[in-house]
Write a protein that binds this DNA or RNA. Sequence first.
DNA 1: TTTATTTACTTAAACGATTAAGTAAAATTC
DNA 2: GAATTTTACTTAATCGTTTAAGTAAATAAA
Lengths: 335, 335
Amino acid sequence: MAGEVNIKRLAQELNISIATVSKALNDSYEISLKTKNRVWDLAKALNYTPNPAASNLRSNKTKTIAVIIPFIANNFFSLAIKGIEEIARKYGHHVLIYQTHEDIEMEMSFTNSLLNGRVDGILTSVSSSEYNGDYYKNLVKKIPLVFFDRVYKDLDAYNVATDDYNISFEATVHLIACGCKKIAYLYGLENLPAGKERFCGYKDAMEANGLKMNEKLVIKYCEDEEKNLEQIRQLLIQHQPDALFSSIEEFVIPAYTACRALQFQIPDDIKIISFSNQATAHLLNPSLTTITQPAFEIGREAATCLFKMLNKKGQGDDHDIVLKSTLIKRGSTGC
Amino acid sequence: MAGEVNIKRLAQELNISIATVSKALNDSYEISLKTKNRVWDLAKALNYTPNPAASNLRSNKTKTIAVIIPFIANNFFSLAIKGIEEIARKYGHHVLIYQTHEDIEMEMSFTNSLLNGRVDGILTSVSSSEYNGDYYKNLVKKIPLVFFDRVYKDLDAYNVATDDYNISFEATVHLIACGCKKIAYLYGLENLPAGKERFCGYKDAMEANGLKMNEKLVIKYCEDEEKNLEQIRQLLIQHQPDALFSSIEEFVIPAYTACRALQFQIPDDIKIISFSNQATAHLLNPSLTTITQPAFEIGREAATCLFKMLNKKGQGDDHDIVLKSTLIKRGSTGC
DNA sequence: TTTATTTACTTAAACGATTAAGTAAAATTC
DNA sequence: GAATTTTACTTAATCGTTTAAGTAAATAAA
């Protein structure tokens, strides 16, 4: 019974045409206020909600956007999603979330499955496993798309990113200012522009301060947590760095663990700085100095860009939007 | 152009009716293999995908399910979602994820917005902020629904939960076996059956071993992380418990932090056990003894139940499904 | 007062699929 | 060889909206 409330039913009860009901519900100028009120009142009384499939089919709008991300179990992405949800709600849109688990096949499979009108647009943060420029070059022609955080440059799409290079530079300078000379780099996202920029920021800051980047002090992230821990242990044992610059938050726990196990006192023997959006950074012991990306704002901004596209606004806009990350100095860098 | 591939187009090119195309695509027995092959080949060649809105409208099926959870930034839920996604993919369904942020208004708002045929069914893990039995009693009549982890008993719906009482009992016994006598309880989810069962398991295990539960050793979770830390600090200072039983993983970092700050050696001075699905539990220092819920399996099981409902199977089934959590003994309980 | 415009509707087609009902030809049964 | 059944289709209605096009009445302009 409840499911049978549609505009036909409303039209019958009010003895007007279904076109009038439809237009009244959409607040069309063609309908008198009196009639609108009658329709709205009855719709409310009968608890009418439009059938999304029917309006999608006719109007070619789904009022749904998709978010494609590597993981949801990540503070950065979950905050970004929160930002996206806020904007989506403002525009009355639903949000579909797809996790790729960094798998490029899944990423393409999900994305392709959205091209038949299931969603109005896509927000995507690409997988780090591979670079897939051709695919996206084609994709942006087919559906409104915004890249966020993990972006593809030089495509005809909005890119919402952070100033990775600058903030890495700044963070490295901070370590150097604290007296560090042997700064190891824990390298994540190496296949992506973001990862490369972070690394360059570090490298250039070293060189700008008369320090040479040492390949042996660079560790690359791997999926296996045990291995990351072991790599850091070996790094500490063999090279005794006086700082760890972690480019992704996944390195934090193994870094702390390795230091503690090997009796490296933080921040006295070794200083640690990490990209991180973990709310618990200040609860660690010692509290962690972080480079924190404005994840929530990135989500908001990316969604805003997408709705600009959907509403055919912001034509002349700059498509490259860069938000500033923040260096939050805490106990792990001491000074 | 690409968007214009529909069954009409296929029918025209093959010079057959759209009904034949539709039936061929759905592998109907009414269509000859020869024709099916022609249709399939052309569909593939033209990269045809059905318009979801059109089939939803006609068939009243969306091939989409919704997951409503408090947070995605949580290891338990993100694992559960992974399990759900696996099953959903097996059945060719999409997964909509909604976060309530433990807000019961949002929870109801999202849920209501799904009742107009946007999804075929819902998997929900209810908000901890309030008990809302009447609402759900009505809801289960309107749409196929499965509760997981945070369940509502005595409704006509599947409940997929874990043996919270038993595992809490077992964990408490483990602490007692390790010599603990003053076991503090860090209380989460107190408004939900799961939270209460965890607490009862602890309490009963204490009493079964001749220990009295002390109200002063019970701390309740609050949103503010700083306050949780401060509460634990005060607990340690004022009562010097010899164990902390944490009923949710959000207490882990503040517990470790407080202990370290106050020079309580884990596990010598104080033992810690916590419900947790954090992959990093074994990387903590010392590694954390956890009660780990089979989150992935809960997701799989819950989704399986939902598809049973959608496919009208499993009529005589027991609606209460209980999976076993595991007590993983590590460094923080020492023995 | 006549004509033009605006207001407030209605009619009917369309969106792209599914499916009940109908049918001609081929295959089977008697 | 006639009657029956099966096979492999087609026709047309339908799902619940939106919207272009049409229209009668009311209002404004001439």
